[in-house]
Amino acid sequence: MITSDTFILEPTDQQLWTGIRNGDEQAYTLIFERYHRTLYNYGSKLSGNSAIVEDAVQEVFIDVWRLRAKLTENVTSVKFYLYRALRRRIHVASDKFPVTEELTMLPDQEMPYTYANSETMLIQHESNSMISRRIQEVLSQLPERQIEVITLRYFDDFSIEEIAGIMGINEKSVRNLIYKAITSFRQTPQHFLVSVLILCLLIIF
């Protein structure tokens, strides 16, 4: 039972979790309110079908209430629990069986330094709107798993360890996926062509 006092102080997830275990509807409502939007957002990266995502989000919450008496007392992170459950739901619903990620088989070594050369290609002096547009463009073309990792890391603020737990892969693979995604921001040939074109036009006129 949450008192109005703890309520005013924004109850912690842990407090709400305990509340749910004791059958507190308020606590349950608050957890739904707190996480359903970001869960849906994450789910959208796993399935392009909004009906599947909606259903999965609902089912995750329905399960929490249905199984409330059996919930472990001390989950390390309620958020982590919800995200992992959602991922499983969506994968079952969209008939995706956990495929062994080819990345996990990459040798356990740091990326070669030569990659650091690409550094100079990442544009540092662009305006905000240009960076924002570039990011949007690149992200829209990334493979699903890279997008998933980027979302969990930079939007949902999960640690590498937690992401590994959610996705069922090892931490090294998570880091590799992030690295791959970030290096995609290197200037693409198209951009190069456009710049050259503009330069040519400037010279001509």
């Binding site: 359903h36 849906y40 957002n41 909606e54 997008i147």
Partner: peptide, 29 residues
Amino acid sequence: YIIFMGEDTGKSQPTSEQSDKMWKAVERH
């Protein structure tokens, strides 16, 4: 980069109609 990536990947949130719909389904249960 970090902020824009967060912003961009956080753009798929449900509309308030979708939120209501999901809540109603959950509440029914």
